[in-house]
Design a protein around this nucleic acid. Structure first.
Length: 266
DNA sequence: ATGGTAGTAAAACTA
């Protein structure tokens, strides 16, 4: 038996978040950390920052938008980018910089940056819903729910009313609306357990994102829980705790997302 | 109903 910890963090630019991420990594030493919105093309990814800290790192990004990376203490096996379903996304040259799958002997991690969707009337929202459908088919053809699979990242959905600070007012937002709940539930229904919710059932005011534009949003608890760690049942059974680390939001130069951490006894 | 901030990158666009 060994303790295993995985973290997820939307960095909103990896290069401008190293002052938060690197000290946090050295202090917390998670086995795996999944990053989203790295906003950097591969040739400019700060790889040596990770190797200097003792991590292997895989990444796929583009110049200004999107971008995903996974850092791990253990050297990974296969690393595969994108949904690889032949479809073409309409918000970037390809979908490859929204999904990174990384395999280890005991489990596989699928790190995703789900399209945000802009507004419900926008074509980007249809693209978001379609992306969830494609992701469901991706899980259908790639794995079985009996395997040890982790799906995590910025999923751009707050699944329940307790996952936002003002469910009445926010209903209809692209991250909090019935069409998105349905699309998310369809992927989750493939065989995923929300690991944070397993350990904090019914607990409100547990948020992973606080909008920069809302003054004192952390102090006023005006957040959203949109960053998630989900696991297939055999793995979820072995989770021992899951928590939200507000460190990135408390930094002198903060980021808008926090870090979610899950611990397993493997 | 709108705007508020931050990031990239050099004027908007995204979130």
């Amino acid at each position: 038996m060994s303790v295993f910890r995985i973290a997820t963090y939307n960095v909103n630019s990896i290069r401008s978040r190293l002052h938060i991420l690197m000290p946090w990594l050295r202090e917390n030493r998670p086995d795996v950390i999944c990053l989203q919105e790295t906003k950097v093309e591969d040739s400019k990814f700060p790889q040596s920052e990770f190797t200097d800290a003792g991590y292997h790192v895989a990444f796929r990004g583009e110049r200004q938008y999107n971008g995903v990376a996974v850092a791990s203490l253990e050297k990974p096996g296969a690393v595969v980018c994108g949904l690889a379903d032949g479809a073409t996304g309409d918000d970037s040259p390809s979908d490859e910089d929204r999904l990174l799958r990384i395999s280890f002997p005991r489990f596989t991690v699928v790190n995703t940056y789900v399209p945000q969707g802009r507004e419900r009337e926008a074509p980007q929202f249809a693209y978001k819903l379609e992306w969830f459908q494609r992701l469901r088919r991706y899980f259908d053809r790639s794995f079985s729910p009996e395997e040890n699979i982790i799906w995590c990242g910025d999923l751009n959905v707050a699944p329940e009313p307790i996952d936002v600070h003002d469910p009445k007012r926010l209903r209809g937002h692209v991250c909090f609306t019935p069409e998105v709940w349905e699309a998310f539930d369809h992927v989750k229904g493939w065989g995923f357990v929300d690991v944070f919710r397993k350990h904090h059932p019914g607990e409100s005011q547990q948020y992973t994102f606080f909008d920069y534009r809302v003054p004192k949003s952390v102090e006023r608890k005006l957040g959203w829980r949109v960053d998630h760690i989900l696991a297939t049942p055999p793995l979820a059974e072995k989770s021992t705790q899951c928590w939200i680390d507000l460190a990135p939001r408390m930094s002198e130069k903060p980021s808008d997302h926090t870090i979610v951490v899950a611990e397993f006894q493997l």
